[in-house]
């Protein structure tokens, strides 16, 4: 329905095919995802927008192969995803850095698993440390890093493996506004330089317009795709431009409708 055949009919890299996900809980069943269909092209930047609890993380986890869908499937370059792996690198909201590893060890972890040569690992890590302005912190442990730096390490860890697809779950949600903007710009730079396909989950309407080629708005319970909104403004995008504000108003309306349903359902359960 909402497939983006218009953008690139030849090569969808990631295909989400009719995904349903049901959680069985104490009170009954939670329909976290329902009838999700989405094709994403190579190099596309897609944002997923929706109220809390609508199933954004569940969707990312399914794409990453952490938990299989109740029905439907995820295809990456035509191959079904059945287990997690470095082809779909994940950047978690809570960073998920390994606290006992230094910054450089965190970044090289995936490369060591791949059994690359020591010199090759060192080269790649050095390049990434420099690109992400982490050179001075290479021997630090995660506990001694700021939120922005932690998230940069988490991004570098995924970049190190050269994953074609990057899944990002509200990666900048915990950062202050200024750091967030810096990280957004850095992410756009990385996206262009490394030619990644990015699926970026967020609560932030502005953030999604600032970053994405397409914005997938989700509904709350069941989690379905409400609408896919393309953003064609040239980058860097100006948040005060009339087109930007127009899209923002439109998205706000869509999200508010779902937010209201979320409130009402909260009220019912209490």
């Amino acid at each position: 329905m909402y497939e983006s055949k218009a953008l690139c009919s030849s090569c969808p890299e990631l295909v989400i095919e009719n995904i349903y996900k049901v959680f069985k809980s104490g009170q009954g069943e939670i329909f976290a995802l329902e009838r999700i269909n989405l094709s994403i092209n190579k190099g596309e930047f897609v944002a997923i927008l929706g109220p809390s609890g609508c199933g954004k993380t569940t969707l990312l986890n399914t794409i990453a192969g952490f938990s299989p869908p109740s029905s439907g499937r995820v295809l990456v370059n035509g191959v079904e995803v059945t287990s997690p792996g470095p082809d779909q690198g994940m950047v978690f909201q809570e960073y998920a850095l390994f606290p006992w590893m230094s910054v450089e060890k965190n970044i090289s972890f995936g490369l060591e698993i791949k059994k690359l040569a020591r010199s090759e690992i060192k080269n790649r890590v050095d390049v990434l440390l420099e690109k992400l302005q982490l050179l001075d912190f290479r021997r630090r442990f995660p506990k001694d890093l700021s939120g922005g730096m932690k998230q940069r390490v988490a991004i570098a860890r995924v970049l190190a493996l050269d994953s074609p697809i990057m899944l990002m779950d509200e990666p900048f949600g915990a950062l202050d506004a200024l750091t967030r903007r810096t990280m957004q710009d850095e992410l756009l730079r990385i996206w262009l330089e490394f030619k990644k396909t990015i699926i970026f989950v967020t609560h932030g309407i502005q953030e999604s317009i600032y970053l994405a080629d397409r914005i997938v708005v989700m509904t709350y319970r069941p989690g379905t795709i409400k609408q896919v909104v393309p953003v064609t403004l040239p980058r860097p995008r100006d948040e005060s431009s009339t087109q930007f504000i127009e899209i923002q108003k439109y998205l706000s309306k869509l999200v508010m409708e779902e937010q209201m349903r979320f409130r009402n359902s909260e009220a019912e359960t209490i």
Binding site: A64, P84, G85, P86, G89, F92, G110, I113, L161
Partner: peptide, 10 residues
């Protein structure tokens, strides 16, 4: 979460 992250990294 750390187990997931490690699995994700292969």
């Amino acid at each position: 979460l750390l187990i997931r992250a490690a699995r994700n990294l292969g």
